[in-house]
């Protein structure tokens, strides 16, 4: 049980919180911590475990979010269907990035992923007839489980917790399984991995596709929870950076790292928003300055991330 210690603390606290806490603001923060942690974990599948660092994952988040909004408003379909449709579309789109990952390395790959998400941003913000363009599009609130409309934040906490646990377990599986070791080999040295018979090209595509589908699922949940989809937010480079950020600060390539990172940065963000939001909207940027500096320091000083640094939690026994 020790190797799950940190995760037990985080998820246990999240599960118990709604029993004691009734404050909507705190519950909202908790939901966001879980959701952002889950998104970073999804990014971590490709960026951390397979070493395919993408700064274009907002593309898949946006596809998931727009699926919820468009299927809901245009065809009155359930978000659960949107979730599946979004995941399928994202998987298809991720094949482009997966293909690129087999042609490009290092900064070239990163640039390509950015360009990819920017194309989707432009399409979503300019295709007025279909997406309502840059105005964004509201996601209808329809009460009920089938329509994912919960007035009660507690339900959302448990839903977010469920998805977070799923991602945690997927990552744990990636650490101890055959495919996990093979991915680690690809990340460390692709040629050497191939020489040992690892089908690296296919594995990378699979990892990126899985990561994309999971990111899309979170995008659908997020859109349904927040209730509005703005193309300049859901497809933004900032968002892609954010997914990577929590994973790197918490501990890249570790199962608990993304959640640990999310607890830290989402809490800081919420705190600063609550503190300074009323005084001057500009001051909200402070948390992003802190993130930027934190990122610079962490990759240089403790590349294994805070989770690895604090408790040696990052290594499997």
């Amino acid at each position: 049980m020790r190797r799950h210690g940190a995760a037990l603390v985080i998820f246990g606290a999240a599960a118990l919180a709604p029993l004691v806490v009734r404050n909507a603001f705190l519950l909202d923060s908790l939901i966001l911590i879980l959701l952002w942690g889950t998104l970073s974990a999804a990014w971590n599948v490709a960026g951390g475990y397979a070493g395919q660092v993408s700064l274009g994952h907002a593309a898949f988040f946006g596809i998931g979010a727009y699926s919820a909004a468009l299927l809901g408003t245009r065809w009155d379909l359930s978000p659960w269907i949107a979730l599946v449709v979004g995941a399928l579309l994202s998987t298809a789109a991720s094949l482009v990035i997966g293909y690129l990952s087999n042609r490009l390395r290092g900064p070239y790959f990163v640039l390509a992923t950015i360009a990819f998400s920017q194309v989707l941003l432009i399409v979503a913000s300019r295709w007025r007839g279909f997406t309502q363009g840059s105005e964004g599009i509201p996601v209808p609130f329809r009460p009920g489980f089938w329509t994912l409309g919960f007035a009660d934040k507690t339900t959302w906490v448990y839903l977010a917790l469920g998805v977070a646990l799923l991602l945690y377990l997927i990552q744990r599986y990636l650490e101890g399984s055959r495919i996990g070791y093979q991915l680690a080999a690809v990340r460390e040295d692709e040629d050497a991995a191939q020489a040992l018979g690892v089908a690296s090209r296919r594995l990378k595509v699979v990892a990126i596709a899985g990561s994309a589908a999971l990111t899309s699922v979170c995008g659908t949940f997020w859109a349904q929870y927040v209730g509005f989809v703005d193309p300049f937010y859901v497809f933004s480079l900032d968002l892609s950076v954010r997914f990577a950020l929590a994973a790197i600060i918490g501990g890249i390539g570790t199962a608990v790292g993304p959640f640990f990172g999310s607890v830290l940065i989402t809490t800081l963000e919420t705190y600063l928003r609550a503190t300074f939001g009323g005084i001057g909207a500009g001051l909200v940027g402070i948390y992003l300055i802190i993130y930027g500096c934190l990122l610079i320091i962490v990759v240089r000083v403790i590349p294994q991330g805070l989770a690895g640094f604090v408790g040696g939690l990052s290594r499997r026994p």
């Binding site: 093979q182 680690a184 080999a185 040629d191 050497a192 690892v198």
Partner: peptide, 19 residues
């Protein structure tokens, strides 16, 4: 030489064995 630097010696060899 191209060992998987970030893996342990045992894990390096396991990648081979897992083929």
């Amino acid at each position: 030489l191209r060992p998987f630097q970030g893996l342990t010696v045992l894990e390096n060899v396991m990648v081979g064995a897992l083929q």
